[in-house]
Design a protein around this nucleic acid. Structure first.
Length: 841
RNA sequence: GCGAAAGUGGCGGAACUGGCAGACGCGCCGGACUUAGGAUCCGGUAGCCGAAAGGCUAUGGGGGUUCAAGUCCCCCCUUUCGCACCA
């Protein structure tokens, strides 16, 4: 066979796979399915090795599962709407669709050159109406169920460019393009009621044992459930998780955005001054998001309300640190037991009352506190509740509040409803029409899709770009037939990615997002991999959409992704690769130098998939060398192996041959567990390397000799006939297994070698090698012997030795004797098949 | 501040349920083959002492449990990531 020429193999096998539609699949209920998915890509233009790592991880899993007999769905597509394409259009004048489709074509080529085994016939891009019409369909369904609704909300607005800015376009409070100070502006916007599922989304996390803890924790925190109570202080309802401290509430704080603020200001003695303060707080709040710390400030309204437990009047303040959108937008101020309230009270000289003392100590003196006492304890100065423990008091006080009709137990979530309106062009048009007479009218289903018009001028100025297209905006009302305006906002691109994994089950359906029967077969996704940056939003939204689609009746499960892997980034020169830093490693350049398989193998070998790694050129070269080494080994033995017996011969299998079989089967065991259960792909590769090393050693001692050194002379002629049937058999078994197990990592090389070994069928059809526990078992073991915890000797013994015999051998061992001579043996511990531990004196 | 994860040779990393720490690879050193080789094959490579046999010390630091700890428990340090006034 010729020298190893990977580039040629890449082309050859990629073409064969395409021609034979090797990775295309259909739902087949008679076969077990496996759905493996990598997060689809934003078509930025070029994939670098950091992106590509994830696709290779998924491909190793997909190819392995195929060999294990599963019907494997492994699709790919494009998350094709989004801001960068629109910004490029504003800067360079290229239409987003043109640049996006060109980028997709290029990146698809890159993935194909890597030999990723995608079912390309299922590919789609979210920016085309065939896909986004179902964003609109789902939106309308959600509208019917009151899961989509409209409310006024604040956006970033650049007064100079006259446009809405995304958060990423606001840099230090200023417009990314012109540098003007960004202001807040209220617009009517669309929201998805994800909070309706808050509790279910939280509980569902407990059903995901194969998700990384880190992600589960992040989602839990993001949903942020807290139990407490709502209590009315006269007309102002507050939310608290510490109702046990209510006797210490000496003031009430409301957020600047609180609906009562307007009235409080108007009725105050100094409406003008107050209004100015409130305006200042509101503006501050926006900047605070960027700059971090803002001093706690407040302003007294002149109003007082009654603490429902002490009966004392307490002042009402407007405070800049109270959040309008959380709880009731108002809180009770308990300075003795809340750090923020404490600082506030000290600053404005408000009274501090201690109402909880530590269980094992006296009540602290209010005047001597240097910080709030936030721990639970026993109630004091709390009327009938004195002496009660905090946790009991919470229950008792909540009951009383409910009995008196002034409040109730309440659960609050940090999670907010999902604002999906974007004042942007490059996204899915929101399918509603505004009629003066009928109000908000949904676009009828039969009128879908609402197609994105082809805007040609991108100035980046004005409102939503769609508002400047009269043919798009001016429509007749579907209800009354009168003149109406089309909604000109588009949807957040996270909508696109919240259900795309379902679309892959049935990507060409033009009636429904997907056929429920097909989704029932393929879903849920068995193995999902992608970057941690999606740990919260994308994964939470997808879990939300899955539940919505379940309630609509399209799917019957709750959780879309059974197992999740968050892959680590690839760094170059210690930094994340990015175009602007100029440190990207282009996979195509590596392909030209070493071929697809060396790159694939290296990326899998360098570290476990979750870990961040530093790119190394020499490491890649090492992987290339390994593949060439396998190539030479297989070629060296191919003829002998092809002519060798298919079953173990009755005689001629000596110690050396048994050792080869043992190594072969032990490698099969390790590789199978590491790929399928642990997903430690790096150790699979090292196990295969060990096997190759052992086969080289065996080879060297065999009549055939070590694989020839290939140089200018092409190596020596090899006397194939001189190898024994036993040698041929064990090498056949070993080399077959090696090529099969290496193939998910290095498919092009292995397909070629497999063929060279005389197998007519493809690798996928060949199946994964079978593990035989008897053959993997060693007949001799090396048992270390410790004396007082230190290694003192090694015993080579038969594997089936008894504990007693092992103990005797250990004690009589020369090296061990030297350390126990003259000392009393107190204890001997034999760990079955592992070690002997002797304790003396 | 709160929460999570991680600290192992010159480097990337192994070590499954506590049981020979450093597999495998990179790098480096040596040998073979060579006109030559940065190709290939073979060998060596944690540190310290020692000619060697061997011994001692080592998994961020300090304690502990155990015959035995990288692994389990407690305290501390460092790094990375996430949330950051959520009442």
């Amino acid at each position: 066979m010729a020298d190893y020429n990977p580039q040629q193999l890449d082309t050859k096998w990629q073409q064969r796979w395409r021609e034979s539609r090797a990775f295309e699949v259909e739902a087949d209920p008679s076969r077990p399915k496996f759905y493996t998915l990598e997060m689809f890509a934003y078509p930025s233009g070029h994939a670098h090795v950091g992106h590509v790592r994830n696709y290779i991880i998924g491909d190793v899993v997909a190819r392995t599962k195929r060999m294990r007999g599963y019907n494997v769905l492994h699709p790919f597509g494009w998350d094709a709407f989004g801001l960068p394409a629109e910004n490029a259009a504003i800067k360079g004048g290229i239409h987003p669709e043109t640049s996006t489709l060109a980028n997709i074509a290029h990146m698809k080529g890159q993935l194909q050159r890597l030999g990723i085994s995608y079912a390309w016939e299922r590919e789609f891009a979210t920016c085309l109406p065939e896909y986004y019409q179902f964003n609109q369909w789902i939106f309308l369904k959600m509208l019917e169920r009151d899961l989509a609704y409209r409310k006024r909300s604040t956006v970033n607005w650049c007064p100079s460019c006259q446009t809405v800015l995304a958060n990423e376009q606001v840099i230090d409070g200023a417009c990314w393009r012109c540098g003007s100070v960004v202001i807040a502006r209220d617009l009517e916007q669309w929201f998805f009621r994800i909070t309706a599922y808050a509790d279910e989304l939280l509980k569902g996390l407990d059903t995901l044992p194969a998700w990384p803890d880190k992600v589960l924790v992040m989602q839990r925190n993001w949903i942020g459930r807290s139990e407490g109570a709502r209590v009315a202080f006269d007309g102002i309802e507050v939310f608290t998780t510490r109702i046990d401290t209510i006797f210490g509430a000496t003031f009430v704080l409301v957020a600047p955005e609180h609906p009562l603020v307007a009235r409080l200001v108007a009725e105050s003695r100094n409406p003008e001054g107050l209004r100015a303060e409130v305006a200042r707080f509101t503006a501050q709040d926006r900047l605070a998001r960027q700059s971090g710390e803002v001093e706690k400030e407040g302003v007294f309204t002149g109003r007082e309300v009654t603490n429902p437990f002490t009966g004392q009047p307490v002042p009402v303040w407007i405070a800049n640190f109270v959040l309008g959108e959380y709880g009731t937008g108002a809180v009770m101020g308990v300075p003795a037991h809340d750090q923020r309230d404490f600082e506030f009270a000290r600053k404005y000289k408000l009274p501090i009352t201690v109402v909880v003392r530590p269980e094992d100590g006296p009540s602290p003196e209010a005047a001597s506190l240097t910080e709030a006492a936030v721990s639970y304890g026993v109630l004091v100065q709390s009327g009938p509740y004195d002496g009660m423990r905090s946790d009991e008091a919470k229950r008792a006080l909540t009951s009383e509040v409910e009995a008196r009709g002034i409040g109730q137990g309440s659960v609050q979530y940090r999670l907010k409803d999902w604002g999906i309106s974007r004042q942007r062009y490059w996204g899915t048009p929101i399918p509603v029409i505004h009629c003066e007479k009928d109000g908000v009218v949904p676009v009828p289903y039969e009128d879908l899709p609402v197609t994105l018009p082809r805007v040609t001028q991108f100035t980046g100025r004005g409102d939503s770009p769609l508002a400047q297209v009269p043919e798009f905006v001016n429509v007749t009302c579907p209800r009354c037939g009168g003149p109406a305006r089309r909604e000109t906002d588009t949807m957040d691109t996270f909508v696109d990615s919240s259900w795309y994994f379902l679309r892959f089950c049935d990507p060409r359906n033009d009636r429904l997002p997907f056929d429920p029967a097909k989704a029932a077969y393929w879903m849920p996704v068995d193995f999902y991999s992608g970057g941690v940056e999606h740990a919260i939003l994308h994964l939470l939204y997808s879990r939300f959409f899955t539940r919505v689609l379940r309630d609509i009746g399209l799917v019957r499960f709750d959780e879309p992704f059974t197992r999740l892997l968050t892959q680590g980034m690839v760094l170059k020169d210690g930094a994340v690769m990015s175009k602007s830093k100029g440190n990207v490693v282009d996979p195509d350049e590596m392909l030209q130098r070493y071929g697809a398989d060396a790159l694939r193998l290296y990326v899998m070998f360098v570290a476990p998939p979750e870990k961040e790694v530093e790119w190394s050129d020499t490491g890649l070269e090492g992987s290339y060398r390994f593949l060439a080494r396998v190539w030479r080994l297989v070629d060296h033995w191919a003829e002998s192996v092809r002519q060798g017996p298919k079953a173990a011969p009755a005689s001629g299998i000596g110690d050396a041959e048994r050792a080869v079989r043992r190594k072969t089967h032990d490698t099969i065991r390790r590789a199978t567990v590491d790929i399928e259960e642990r997903i430690h792909l790096n150790t699979v590769v090292s196990a295969l390397m060990e096997l190759v090393n052992e086969l080289y050693a065996y080879s060297e001692r065999s009549p055939l000799g070590a694989p020839a050194m290939r140089g200018s002379d092409g190596g020596a002629a090899v006397p194939q006939a001189s190898t024994s049937p036993a040698a041929r058999f064990v090498m056949r078994e070993a080399i077959d297994a090696l090529v099969l197990m290496l193939s998910p990592f290095a498919p092009h090389t292995c397909e070629e070698l497999w063929q060279h070994l005389g197998h007519p069928e493809s690798l996928a059809a060949a199946g994964w090698p079978e593990f035989d526990a008897d053959l993997a078992r060693a007949d001799e073991l090396v048992i270390p012997v410790q004396v007082n915890g230190k290694l003192r000797g090694r015993l080579t013994v038969p594997a089936d030795i008894s504990d007693d015999r092992l103990k005797d051998l250990a004690l009589s061992d020369e090296a061990v004797q030297a350390h126990i001579a003259g000392k009393a043996v107190r204890k001997v511990i034999v760990a079955k098949g592992r070690l002997v531990s002797v304790v003396v004196q």
